[in-house]
């Protein structure tokens, strides 16, 4: 089992750095080239969500990532330090079908823009749900944890 851990200050500029590192580790862990875009985007979404949550609640706390390759899976866990964030609702559905993040049930673009602005819809979670092979979102008194994984060849 190979583990890479990464912590970064909750600044938007660092999300790109995190994406680059995760993509490099995913490639090294044997994730198919065709899946790397999905890994990059899904992890970027999880990091963006965590950065925004930290900026609202605890800007001095770093966002934490753990990248793990074992048993033919590449697993990424993004952990924030903001307890009690509500992650239910459209695009925020706990235990939803990971194959669909369709938000058009929200209604017109005006409705959707309003829902995005007031936080009842989270496009980022919708994208993660649509992209990651396996997603688990959990909340604890310490914060929100998003665990995503993809198939990977055993790295040499």
């Amino acid at each position: 089992m190979a583990i890479v851990e990464l912590s970064f200050s909750a600044l938007p500029v660092h999300v790109r750095t995190a994406r680059l590192i995760v993509t490099a580790v995913a490639r090294r862990s044997g994730v198919e080239e065709a899946l790397l875009d999905e890994v990059r985007l899904a992890v970027g979404e999880a990091c963006s969500r965590a950065v925004e949550a930290h900026r609202r609640n605890c800007p001095d706390e770093p966002v934490h990532l753990e990248l793990k390759g074992e048993n033919g899976r590449f697993e990424v866990t993004v952990t924030d330090a903001v307890p009690g964030e509500d992650i239910s609702g459209p695009g925020r559905r706990e235990g939803s079908d990971a194959s669909s993040g369709d938000l058009t049930s929200v209604g017109t673009p005006e409705d959707l823009a309003f829902a995005l602005a007031n936080g009842t819809v989270d496009l980022g979670l919708a994208v993660i749900e649509g992209l990651a092979d396996d997603v688990e979102i959990s909340t604890s008194p310490k914060g929100v944890q998003i665990r995503m994984s993809w198939p990977a060849e055993e790295a040499s």
Binding site: S100, G101, L103
Partner: peptide, 8 residues
Amino acid sequence: RITGLTKV
């Protein structure tokens, strides 16, 4: 496509 925004 995955967010359904192709309809928007």
